[in-house]
Computed example of a mutant assay.
Amino acid sequence: MEYTNEILIKKSISEVIKKYNSTANLKHWQEGLVSTEHISGNPSELGAKMKLIFSFGKRKMEVIETVTKQQLPNELHVTYTTNGVRNIQENYFKVIENNATQWISKTECQPTSFKMSVMLFLMPSLFKKQTETYMSNFKNFVEQGISIG
Rank of each mutant, 00 (worst) to 15 (best):
V95D: 04
M50I: 03
L46Y: 04
T107G: 04
M50R: 15
S113E: 13
K27W: 08
V63T: 11
H77F: 13
P111Q: 09
L46V: 02
E97D: 15
G84K: 14
K94P: 00
M116I: 09
S12E: 11
V78L: 06
S12R: 09
Q30T: 03
K60R: 15
K49Y: 02
I39W: 12
V85K: 12
T81V: 13
P73T: 15
T82F: 09
K27T: 10
Y80C: 05
K11M: 09
Q71C: 06
F56H: 13
P73V: 13
V118C: 03
F114A: 07
T82E: 14
Q71N: 15
V67R: 05
K19L: 14
E31K: 13
M119A: 12
G47P: 06
K27E: 13
L33Y: 08
K115L: 12
N99E: 15
I13S: 01
P73N: 07
N74T: 12
L72P: 06
A100D: 11
Y20M: 04
P73E: 14
N83H: 05
K51V: 04
N83W: 03
E31R: 11
L122R: 06
M50K: 15
I17H: 01
K106F: 05
Q89G: 01
N21I: 02
H77K: 05
N25S: 04
C109A: 14
K58I: 12
V85A: 10
R59D: 12
K60D: 07
P111S: 12
S55E: 11
Q71L: 07
W29G: 02
V63K: 12
S55D: 03
A100L: 04
Y92N: 10
L33H: 08
P43S: 14
R86E: 14
L122P: 03
F121H: 08
K10H: 13
K69I: 03
T23N: 05
F121K: 15
I88G: 01
T107V: 15
T81N: 04
V16K: 07
S44A: 05
T107A: 13
S12L: 06
S113P: 02
I88R: 07
S35I: 09
H77G: 00
N98V: 08
S113M: 09
N74H: 11
R86H: 01
S22E: 13
K115T: 13
K10C: 10
E108A: 05
Y92G: 02
L46G: 00
V16R: 09
H38W: 13
C109H: 04
S12V: 04
Q70F: 01
T66N: 02
K11W: 13
L46H: 02
E45T: 08
E37F: 01
K11Y: 09
E65M: 10
Q70P: 00
K60F: 10
M61E: 14
K19D: 05
Y92S: 07
K18V: 00
V34M: 12
L120P: 04
S105F: 01
K49V: 00
M119T: 08
M116D: 06
M119R: 05
